[in-house]
Computed example of a mutant assay.
Amino acid sequence: MTVDTVALIPRRPFAWKEFLLQSWFVARVSLLPTVLLALPFSVLTVFTLNILLVEFGAADFSGAGAAYGSVTQIGPMVTVLVVAGAGATAMCADLGARTIRDEIDALRVMGVNPLQALVVPRVVAATFVAVMLSSVVILVGLVGSFVFSVYVQHATPGAFAAGITLITGIGAVVIALVKAALFGLSAGLIACYKGMSVGGGPAGVGQAVNETVVYTFMTLFAINIIASAIGVEAIS
């Protein structure tokens, strides 16, 4: 299904209406949880890092650590956790309900390819929204880290701002967005596959939703390790 879906993405006609509806849906259910998760993750990272920097007498470099953590790990990770927990599960439940009601088979009888009509726009929407949300998480993480470092741990505002680009450049940002796109792509593919292969009635839909979350998280960590290793080698 993955190969067929990727092959159908550039083909016409593309289901733009379904893509826009799914993009809006995933963004609507994921935006607030993403922001609420980004703040504590960023603050916890900065708090721990600043304690070490103060011990070494290098508190002025708190911005460098905050930027590197937010861009390389917190942004993509928080994004896919929310997309997998909210958007992907909803996609799986929707397609699973259509499957057990024989709507997918009805589309095939009418000569409509369900992969092109339903799966492709959902996968592309999950990928697109994951990249957009990752950018929001990075921005929120940097702002939250700045406020916490300056007003709670008394770091110097100018030094924090100057350290943001010290070890985090455009290459790290590009790799972070690529990771977010891969996370969103894998979440969409897993959700659609589990939804399209549901069996056993309504109980099977619930089981497929649970499996979607578990498999997506497992895939997330595997992709993160591989992409991070490749990214480090590419930057260096």
Rank of each mutant, 00 (worst) to 15 (best):
97 A>M: 10
97 A>F: 04
97 A>I: 10
97 A>S: 15
97 A>G: 15
97 A>D: 08
97 A>K: 12
98 R>S: 11
98 R>G: 06
98 R>N: 08
98 R>T: 06
98 R>D: 02
99 T>Y: 00
100 I>D: 01
100 I>C: 04
100 I>G: 00
100 I>S: 03
100 I>E: 01
100 I>A: 04
100 I>N: 03
100 I>W: 03
100 I>H: 04
101 R>E: 07
101 R>N: 15
101 R>K: 15
102 D>S: 13
102 D>Q: 15
102 D>I: 00
103 E>S: 07
103 E>Y: 05
103 E>D: 10
104 I>Y: 01
104 I>S: 00
104 I>A: 02
105 D>P: 03
105 D>G: 06
105 D>R: 13
105 D>K: 09
105 D>V: 10
105 D>L: 14
105 D>A: 15
106 A>L: 05
107 L>Q: 12
107 L>R: 05
107 L>W: 05
107 L>D: 09
108 R>Q: 13
108 R>I: 05
108 R>V: 07
109 V>R: 01
109 V>A: 14
109 V>I: 15
109 V>L: 14
109 V>F: 07
109 V>N: 07
110 M>L: 15
110 M>Y: 12
111 G>H: 00
111 G>P: 02
112 V>P: 00
112 V>A: 13
112 V>H: 00
113 N>E: 13
113 N>W: 02
114 P>T: 09
114 P>G: 12
114 P>L: 10
115 L>Y: 10
115 L>G: 11
115 L>F: 12
115 L>V: 11
115 L>R: 14
115 L>M: 13
116 Q>W: 01
116 Q>R: 15
116 Q>S: 15
116 Q>L: 07
116 Q>E: 12
116 Q>H: 08
116 Q>F: 00
117 A>G: 10
117 A>Q: 12
117 A>N: 08
118 L>Q: 08
118 L>T: 02
119 V>F: 00
119 V>I: 14
119 V>C: 03
120 V>M: 11
120 V>S: 06
120 V>F: 04
121 P>S: 08
121 P>Y: 06
121 P>D: 09
121 P>E: 03
121 P>K: 08
122 R>K: 14
122 R>G: 12
122 R>F: 00
122 R>D: 02
122 R>Q: 12
122 R>M: 11
123 V>G: 09
123 V>C: 07
123 V>L: 01
124 V>L: 11
124 V>K: 01
124 V>H: 02
124 V>D: 08
125 A>R: 08
125 A>C: 06
125 A>N: 10
126 A>L: 10
126 A>Q: 11
126 A>N: 11
126 A>C: 13
126 A>I: 04
126 A>R: 08
127 T>A: 14
127 T>M: 14
127 T>W: 03
127 T>G: 07
128 F>C: 15
128 F>H: 05
128 F>I: 13
129 V>H: 06
129 V>P: 03
